[in-house]
Nucleic acid binder design. Structure first.
Lengths: 153, 153
DNA sequence: TATTGTTATACTCTATAACTATA
DNA sequence: TATAGTTATAGAGTATAACAATA
């Protein structure tokens, strides 16, 4: 028999989050925020926020990539990328060059300084992630990333 | 031997995302956004955005919970919860009642209408998640949620 | 003195409309 | 006619400071 519903108002001492914790979206968001929190701290040295980092990393690994390709890859909107790209260029981390076949577009290239910075930043990012996921074994971490990719890729 | 670096500018036909895809934060964020996208569509019927849903669900499952407890549980800031709570109250989904022991706080309670709506909304949320994670087996989904919780809990 | 809830406000992030130059 | 990039702007989300009421 279920317990009778209390008629007297009662203070909650421990919050029951069991339903929310069954949800993939809830848990994915919590992990995302947990990583971002540490990311912002550690990557402040490089003056790179998560999106800056993703964009710069893609430029390093894809010399000549266009803004349009960055947008569709990362799910960004073109107007929101303009300032970001210009800021990276102003810092001397990337350079716009004429696109070889499309006169409307620019090919984005990392400078030597950009490549150097991102080499360090990527090591730092990978390292801080290991720190955040410290409760997971190496195998569990690989499994987690594999399953996450399987959801959206 | 590695291939020599091309001196001629070349257009990128397929974007290499392999580095980013090794990152837990990147993948968690992508999954989070993928779920939110479908969530916003499906839950528009209930006029519940992700945070509204989380708050209302916690109130249903924790009658008498305070704003302060909602904030610390969900990682929200008190000022940002005020309007949200008032909107739910205005819609007749929740009610503020005096807190039994703390005169500063209010105990939040779902109304019959709120309980009814959230019963449907939770079914819809669970259902849409299964849809988003359709590429995962039931076992994989359980594993994914377990590993995500292990990261931040 | 510390905490709950609130107001006002600022900052960041994301989204929409419209324009230009080129395809 | 469609697309890449841009500008301007609007909206949503998140953050800080300061206050009244109560602990």
């Amino acid at each position: 028999m279920p317990t009778a519903i209390s008629t007297r108002p009662v203070a909650i001492d421990e919050v029951d989050t069991r339903y929310l914790e069954t949800l993939l979206g809830y848990n994915a968001r919590r992990v995302s925020l947990a990583v971002i929190e540490v990311f912002l701290q550690r990557m402040a040295d490089y003056k790179l926020r998560p999106v800056d980092f993703s964009v710069a990393s893609l430029i390093v690994h894809n010399p000549g990539i266009t803004s349009r390709q960055l947008c569709s890859t990362l799910g960004l909107l073109p107007p929101n990328l303009v300032g970001l790209i210009n800021a990276l260029e102003k810092r001397g981390l990337i350079r716009k060059r004429p696109h070889p076949t499309d006169g409307r577009a620019s090919g984005l290239h990392a400078t030597a300084a950009g490549i150097s910075l991102m080499k360090e930043a990527e090591v730092a990012a990978t390292s801080l992630e290991a720190e955040v996921a410290t409760r997971l074994t190496a195998t569990e971490r690989v499994t987690l990333v594999r399953l996450l990719k399987k959801v959206y890729l």
